[in-house]
Computed example of a mutant assay.
Amino acid sequence: MKNRKITLKKRPVGMPLLSDFNIEEELMPVSGEGEVLLKSAYVSVDPYLRGKMNGTHPPIFELNEPVSSKIIAEVVESNNDNFKKGAYVSGYLNWKDYQVSDGKALQKIDSNTAPLSAYLGVLGITGLSAYIALMDIGKPGKGETLVVSGAAGAVGSIAGQIGKIIGCKVVGIVGTDEKIDLIKTKFGYDEAINYKTTPDLKAAIAQLCSEGVDIYFDNVGGSISDGVIANMNNYGRIPVCGTISNYNDIKAQTGPSLLPIVVYKFLTIQGFLIGDHAVRFPGVIAQLSAWLKEGKITYSETILEGFDKLPEAFIGLFEGRNEGKMIVKID
């Protein structure tokens, strides 16, 4: 029996292409003493992987080596007393059907609490990023106005719902009219803007946020962020969780000079990477689980099926083909 893996064939230039990846076969791995044999069940594809492919987000992916991301896997063989055969775990693993682990970096998953795929989304890095970035940097308060870019995406859809729980007015920026309907009906957003059909985003934000913007949860960067930041109130807070609009740039982009706005409006702009907050994970997941159980938050997933769909799913992130979390279910 052969084991499939997906490797990085060449570093993408601009938009990633299917030809940047290789689907290869290798011998099936065998678990040794203290190890477990894992079978991939659900694989997370995320925009930040793009930086690992071109070397701007360490640790970088090496050419002709497997791509890796967060994966939910089944323990199919165990020589480790901490893991039982048939249990499910999550961890940063390679894009392979099967692989061996010593178990040190694996987290056990309770499949009775939520569907397995939820641990890649609302109860995984997605939910953790939305909660910690918004609460720690955004510091939302009741009655404040929160704007979220990439509002129908994995992190944005959760961040907006948390803002509503706190009591904020929440405005989302998305790329289609269908996503406007999604975030308003399913995620409870008060208002939404389709940036692709809005010629003057700055003016549109000013109209919907008549009292200004207190918090901007930034997932996209670029000209969208320029339009929002121009409408920030004094002492506004801007957690920068991602800049997906720039990940595939070949040339550096220029935009309005922000420093005068930062100075004269006393703005706080802070970058965010989830790996810096691991000590918080258990408590935050407990809170998200409680909100999920109480019906205060919900989530959306775009699930493609088939190991060979992994590169396609990843590329789809940059084409806006996902509603909520993009996941690949391994057959």
Rank of each mutant, 00 (worst) to 15 (best):
G86Q: 08
G86S: 04
G86Y: 05
A87R: 02
A87T: 13
A87K: 09
Y88P: 05
V89W: 07
V89A: 03
V89G: 00
S90I: 01
S90V: 00
S90M: 11
S90T: 09
G91L: 10
G91S: 03
Y92I: 14
Y92N: 14
Y92M: 14
L93G: 01
L93Y: 08
N94C: 05
N94P: 11
N94F: 08
N94D: 14
N94A: 12
N94E: 14
K96P: 01
D97G: 00
D97M: 06
D97I: 07
Y98Q: 06
Y98H: 13
Y98D: 05
Y98S: 04
Q99V: 02
Q99K: 07
Q99E: 15
Q99S: 11
Q99D: 06
Q99Y: 08
Q99L: 11
V100F: 09
V100M: 09
V100R: 06
V100W: 06
V100L: 08
S101I: 01
S101Y: 04
D102V: 02
G103T: 08
G103P: 12
G103K: 11
K104G: 00
K104M: 04
K104P: 01
K104T: 12
K104Q: 11
A105P: 00
L106C: 00
L106R: 04
L106Y: 00
L106S: 00
Q107D: 14
Q107F: 11
Q107T: 12
Q107I: 04
K108T: 13
K108Y: 03
K108S: 14
K108I: 13
K108D: 11
I109Q: 05
D110F: 10
D110L: 10
S111A: 13
S111D: 13
N112E: 15
N112C: 07
T113R: 15
T113E: 15
A114C: 01
A114L: 05
A114V: 02
A114G: 01
L116G: 06
L116R: 06
S117A: 14
S117E: 15
S117L: 15
A118S: 15
A118P: 01
L120W: 12
G121K: 09
G121H: 06
G121M: 10
V122D: 03
V122M: 11
L123Y: 07
L123H: 08
G124E: 03
G124F: 02
I125S: 14
I125T: 13
I125W: 03
I125M: 15
I125R: 09
I125E: 02
T126V: 07
T126I: 01
T126A: 06
T126S: 12
T126L: 00
G127P: 10
G127K: 12
G127S: 13
L128M: 15
L128C: 11
L128H: 13
S129Q: 02
S129C: 02
A130T: 12
Y131P: 02
Y131E: 05
Y131A: 07
Y131K: 07
Y131V: 00
I132H: 08
I132N: 10
I132A: 06
A133D: 12
A133G: 14
A133Q: 09
M135A: 11
D136H: 12
D136M: 10
D136A: 10
I137D: 06
I137S: 07
I137E: 08
I137H: 09
I137Y: 08
I137T: 09
